[in-house]
């Protein structure tokens, strides 16, 4: 069977002034279904860039990337949007919730873009919120929620489309240790239920909760270890 993520010699190069910045350099990477991967590395090592490429938010400058057997280079902006909508759930360090929308509306957002009918959307939103324990906060706005609750709304939003891949870029970076642990317990549960998870972190203890740890340095994979 094909791996879910299959990258060969992927580089991401930014032009800053006259200089070329290699955010990623010749990266080979495979991720199988139902893996739980942690990506580590110092700041500026290319972790977010790699996540964005895996998540089809961006495309490689060089190299080839196949997601679930499809060549990402051949997709246009709208086709990439469809892949993100159906196959990928993002969780960000800063949550990235819409501030004026309720928790339920935030969770509903990907379903609206998938063209799902309202009645079905309501059911899905309800079950996603109850899964992260926020049923009673459905009609609160982000500024009426704690940091941990906000991140759980973001997790519900990522889960609601039942994606094949969940990407979390420093999901506990803005949370205290206890709340962060709760979020990680949530991830463990999601993983046990069959999801594929990739998580960026720069904390060893956090990375230890994953099955596989990839270390980046200066845009290159330094090590890739399975436990």
């Amino acid at each position: 069977m094909n791996p879910l993520v299959y990258m060969r010699s992927v580089s991401k190069i930014y032009e800053v002034g006259d200089e070329l910045v290699y955010a990623l350099r010749e990266v080979d990477l495979e991720i199988e279904e139902n893996e739980y991967v942690a990506i580590m590395g110092p700041s500026g090592s290319g972790k977010s860039t790699l996540m964005n490429l895996i998540g089809c938010l961006d495309t490689p400058t060089r190299g080839s990337y196949e997601f679930a057997g499809h060549s990402v280079e051949e997709l246009d902006a709208d086709e990439l949007a469809r892949v993100r909508n159906e196959e990928i759930g993002f969780i960000f360090q800063t949550f990235n919730l819409l501030p004026r929308s309720t928790a339920a509306s935030n969770v509903e957002l990907p379903l609206i873009y998938s063209g799902m009918r309202p009645a079905e959307r309501r059911i899905r939103v309800g079950s996603a919120l109850s899964r992260v324990g926020l049923t009673d906060r459905a009609h609160h706005r982000p500024n009426q929620l704690s940091g941990g609750q906000r991140q759980r709304v973001a997790i519900a939003r990522a889960l609601v489309t039942e994606p094949s891949l969940i990407l979390a870029d420093e999901p506990t970076g803005n949370l205290d240790t206890k709340t962060g642990d709760e979020i990680l317990d949530e991830f463990a549960r999601i993983h046990n239920e069959g999801a594929t998870l990739v998580m960026v972190t720069h904390e060893e203890e956090v990375a230890q909760r994953a099955e596989r740890v990839i270390r980046l340095r200066d845009g290159e994979i330094e090590s890739d270890r399975r436990r």
Binding site: G55, L57, R82, R84, L109, P110, Y113, T161
Partner: peptide, 11 residues
């Protein structure tokens, strides 16, 4: 950006 990340297309 958020809308696009969760799958909003151009239209």
């Amino acid at each position: 950006g958020v809308r696009k990340a969760v799958g909003a297309r151009g239209r």
